[in-house]
Design a protein around this nucleic acid. Structure first.
Length: 308
DNA sequence: TTCCCGAGAC
DNA sequence: GTCTCGGGAA
């Protein structure tokens, strides 16, 4: 047997329903970035390279300016390296090494491949600056011909939803098993959208109407720990800071149980963990003493509400 | 001498 | 996220 045996051991038995739910959720509504409206490999590559180091909202303007200046891969290939690097600097796009790679990749396509873009991940990987992530992204978004994209966002989602262990091979295998055959374009867009709006470091399951709540392990347990989320707060988060968050969160919801409130207060909340129910009870107890919050015990559950 | 991998730089 | 580099394995 191959190394793929058991690749879906972490997935629910009804993978089919899991896939449909996400695609449906994505198609119903999603952020409308301009590069999601094109299937031109050149335009897609430019957006991917820019996105590797800059927040998407800032990339939009840079992407449009870049394409206005160099509309086609041939234009970019013919440009002076210095101008491309200069553009990068002027638009605060980060390490200008990437500008160099992008320019070089354009030259490769034009000069070594006669202007023909590779249409699969392996071929795309031969382009300068294009690693596994970008290769799958371009193959998917331009040609609907990629494999599952696995970046930190995807890992976080798989880790939380299906308890996939923090291991690259496990993430890779699970992501591949989840990908609907031949639908990499919509799928990779959907998974990344999920990680971007519903399952960020600080989860927003209900607010974003996450389509995976019924299967999600974290949603059920209240433990939203994630691989890339530091277990310890960057700096010793003051109790005062957390009190503020509790008030802020309760202000949005009528009432929340401990496990519903916990993850919204701190991402490393784990019911039985160091900063779990015990810790949260203590915090709420203090707030109750100050008459800011009301804590009630309803049929075995602890519920917190804001005191008006 | 070539391959593979972890570490650090960009 | 990707590339380069240096040490250890094959």
């Amino acid at each position: 047997m191959s190394e793929q045996a058991g690749a879906d051991e972490h997935l629910p038995s009804d993978v089919h329903a899991v896939r449909d739910a996400l695609v449906e959720w994505y198609e119903a509504d999603h952020r409308d970035y301009p590069w999601r409206r094109t299937d031109d490999p050149y335009e897609i590559l430019v957006s991917e390279v820019m996105s590797q180091q800059t927040q998407l909202d800032r990339v939009v303007a840079a992407w449009e300016d870049f394409l206005e200046r160099w509309p086609t891969v041939a234009d970019l290939a013919a440009a002076d390296r210095g101008d491309v690097v200069g553009f990068w600097t002027d638009h605060s796009l980060g390490y200008n090494n990437r500008a160099k790679y992008l320019h070089e990749a354009a030259r490769q396509v034009v000069h070594e491949r006669d202007g023909e873009w590779p249409r699969d991940p392996d071929g795309l990987s031969e382009l300068m600056g294009v690693g596994p992530y970008t290769a799958n992204a371009v193959a998917s978004f331009a040609f609907d011909n990629g494999n599952a994209v696995v970046d930190t966002n995807v890992k976080r989602v798989l880790y939380r939803a299906f308890d996939v262990p923090d291991d690259d091979d496990a993430f890779e295998a699970t992501a591949r098993a989840l990908l609907p055959e031949g639908r990499s374009r919509v799928w990779n867009n959907a998974v990344m959208e999920l990680g971007g709006v519903a399952c960020e470091k600080t989860p927003d399951c209900d607010g974003a109407q996450c389509p995976w709540r019924e299967w999600c392990s974290a949603y059920q347990s209240g433990d939203f720990t994630a691989p890339d989320v530091p277990t310890q707060p960057a700096f010793e988060g003051s109790r005062r800071q957390f009190r503020g968050r509790v008030i802020s969160v309760l202000n949005e919801y009528d009432e929340l149980t401990l496990d519903e409130l916990g993850p919204r207060i701190r991402v490393d909340y784990a019911p039985e963990g160091e900063h779990g129910r015990e810790w949260l009870r203590g915090l709420l107890s203090d707030l109750a003493d100050d008459e800011l919050v009301a804590v009630t015990e309803a049929d075995g559950r602890t519920v917190a509400t804001l005191r008006r």
